Simulated assay, not measured.
Amino acid sequence: MSHPTQRRVWFITGTSTGFGRALTEIVLAKGEAVVATARTPSVLANLVSQYPSDRLLTLKLDITQPTEVADAFEKAREAFGRIDVVVNNAGCGHAGEFESMDDEMGRAILETNFWGTVSVTRQALKFFREVNPKGHGGRLLQNSSMLGVVGKPAFSFYVASKFALEGLTESFAQELDPAWNIKVTLIEAGWFQTSMKEGAKWAPQHPAYQNADLPVSRVRASWDAFVCPGDARKGAEAIYKIAALPDPPLHFPLGEDALAEMQTKFDEFGKVLKEYRSWSEGLLTDEDVGATKDA
């Protein structure tokens, strides 16, 4: 991995708005290079006019199309020869009661947030190992969410996509050969002022969930007035910093709300483990008990 003070090459998906856009601007301002991808790269025209081609390459990319993902990495190789940091930022979020969301809406979320991210991840790992100089490695930042750790009403399919990403990443991170020098971090952000809230599509309310006191009904009723507390620029600055750590954490909660929500879940989980621990004791098979005694 190149030293943080050297000019790194970043590959960032979903750079039209939110974290992706803010992080692209920060990286460029720091003197580094960016391959900025978006479904509509023309929205990056003002950045293209500010930075030369050896600092910024914009590419049209729909991460749900594996061939487009492969082509984007090849174009990055042709332009810069290496990639130091890949940021899996592109995603989408729709909302509604679980029973109100049809398969088409649910699958669309999984296709982008999970399978699209899978395509980028595969290309990133291969690039770090086989295209970058041997041992150079790279950093892979997976834009998960606090909703990849804590479930919330109205966001069941979005939560499912992020839970899946968390499990996938935790697993393959343990498979990587340390000699490859690939560092992986899950960014578990809370509510930040990105385009997700404005871009979220709501399914029509399911008739069985008319009770205004239900948590999901309260989310519906308050959604338009809800103001995301996190500053996307400040969040992106933290993401930039995490990519420079020599030994970054696998999990990186981001935002005070993320910290609070995750702490509450872990505390509740701890209570359950303590209360019901005895229920799991003495459940070994006779063969396992005998082997334990022999040892």
Rank of each mutant, 00 (worst) to 15 (best):
L110K: 13
A189E: 03
K201G: 11
S156T: 10
Q193W: 03
N113P: 01
F192V: 04
Q174F: 05
F127I: 10
F128G: 09
G148E: 02
A208R: 15
T185A: 02
G116F: 13
S156H: 01
F192T: 02
E111R: 13
S195D: 05
P178Q: 06
W115G: 03
L168Q: 06
Q123W: 02
E170Y: 06
G190L: 08
A154E: 05
L110Y: 02
V120A: 10
S119C: 13
V85P: 00
M196S: 09
M196V: 14
I109P: 06
K197V: 00
D213P: 01
H94G: 09
W180Y: 11
G93Y: 00
A200V: 15
V184Q: 00
G116V: 14
G190T: 07
K134V: 15
T117D: 06
F98R: 07
G151A: 14
A179K: 11
L147R: 11
V184I: 12
A164F: 13
A154P: 01
S195A: 15
N89R: 07
N88L: 02
V86W: 01
K134Y: 05
A124M: 07
A95M: 14
I182G: 07
T112E: 12
V87K: 10
R122D: 01
E170D: 06
S195K: 15
A90C: 01
L165D: 06
T194Q: 13
W202T: 13
A108R: 08
E104S: 15
A108C: 01
